[in-house]
Amino acid sequence: MKSDARSGPISRWDRTLIPVEDAANFVAAFFIFALMVLGIAQIVLRTVFNAPLSGYIDLVELSMAGMAFLGAAYTQRMGAHIRMELLLGNLKGRPLWAAEVVGTLLSMFVVGVLIYYSFEHFQRSYELGDTTIDAEYPVWPSKLVVPVAFSIWFIRLGIQLAGSIRLLFNPSLAPEGVILIKDAADQARDEAISADATDDGGR
């Protein structure tokens, strides 16, 4: 599944958001890589030099928010979130896009609630000067990541909602900013093309 980009206004919003999603996903990947390097350093320093890193557990805790949430909007754009497609896969035309509209609205409601309460949680942490227990690192930057990541995700859902409503009114239009369901044959063909491209690049 993937988002189909054309030339309409929804696609322009789509293309505008893509660099933001890619940057957030890169930061999430960086957190994962940094945590891996930090883990190796912790093992080596503790085992060989008997000098573990100070505040290692605190850094692991603070990095979890970035790793868990910054890639959410990117994953939504790629259609990689877990979706129940047993029903959607058998729908066509207006019933399909009506179901997508309902599902996206529900998702936006849930994400909107999470934005509100996670931002309140960040504000409380910032005002109280909350810190980690061991090294006393400030906690609020990690907590701020959550509403920021959810806000990007909310905008992505808004773009998909607009694209679904557009197709609900006129299913014959070219898809813009929506997730397209692929059958097994299409998915296998895309994977084969991707594998061929990788092989050609490695020669």
Rank of each mutant, 00 (worst) to 15 (best):
M64G: 06
Q76H: 13
S125L: 07
I193P: 00
A162P: 03
G79R: 06
P171H: 08
P147F: 02
D130G: 02
A23S: 09
I181V: 15
D4Y: 15
E136A: 12
I181N: 14
E136N: 11
L45C: 02
R83A: 15
A98T: 07
N25V: 05
T131E: 07
D186N: 06
S125M: 08
F26L: 15
A98D: 07
S107R: 09
T198P: 01
F109N: 00
V139N: 10
L53A: 05
N50Y: 11
L106I: 11
G103C: 10
V20H: 03
V139K: 13
N50E: 14
G129L: 08
I18W: 02
I57P: 05
F119Q: 03
G71Q: 11
P52R: 04
D134A: 12
D58Y: 03
V139R: 13
L62R: 14
A162T: 04
F154Q: 12
F30S: 11
A28L: 03
M64T: 14
V110N: 01
P52Q: 04
A5V: 15
P147E: 00
T131P: 00
K182N: 10
K182R: 13
L86R: 12
I115D: 07
M67I: 15
V146Q: 02
A51S: 14
T132C: 01
E21S: 11
Y56L: 01
E191A: 14
L53C: 06
L62I: 15
M78Y: 09
I82E: 09
P95I: 04
R166T: 08
D134T: 12
V20N: 00
A197F: 08
F30A: 15
D22W: 04
L128V: 11
L70S: 01
A99H: 11
I159K: 07
A135V: 11
L161G: 06
V102P: 06
T132W: 06
E85Y: 06
Y116D: 01
R94Y: 04
L53V: 14
A28G: 12
N25K: 05
E21L: 12
F122P: 09
I155G: 03
N90M: 13
G55N: 07
G66R: 00
A192V: 07
A72M: 13
Y116Q: 03
N90D: 12
V139E: 09
M1P: 11
V60A: 12
L105S: 14
F150V: 07
Y126H: 13
D58S: 07
Q76I: 13
Q123P: 00
R156G: 04
P175I: 02
L86C: 06
D58Q: 06
M64D: 02
G93F: 08
R15F: 06
R156K: 06
M36T: 15
G71S: 14
K143W: 01
D190Q: 07
A34E: 00
D196K: 11
S3I: 13
P175R: 05
R156V: 02
G129C: 03
R156D: 04
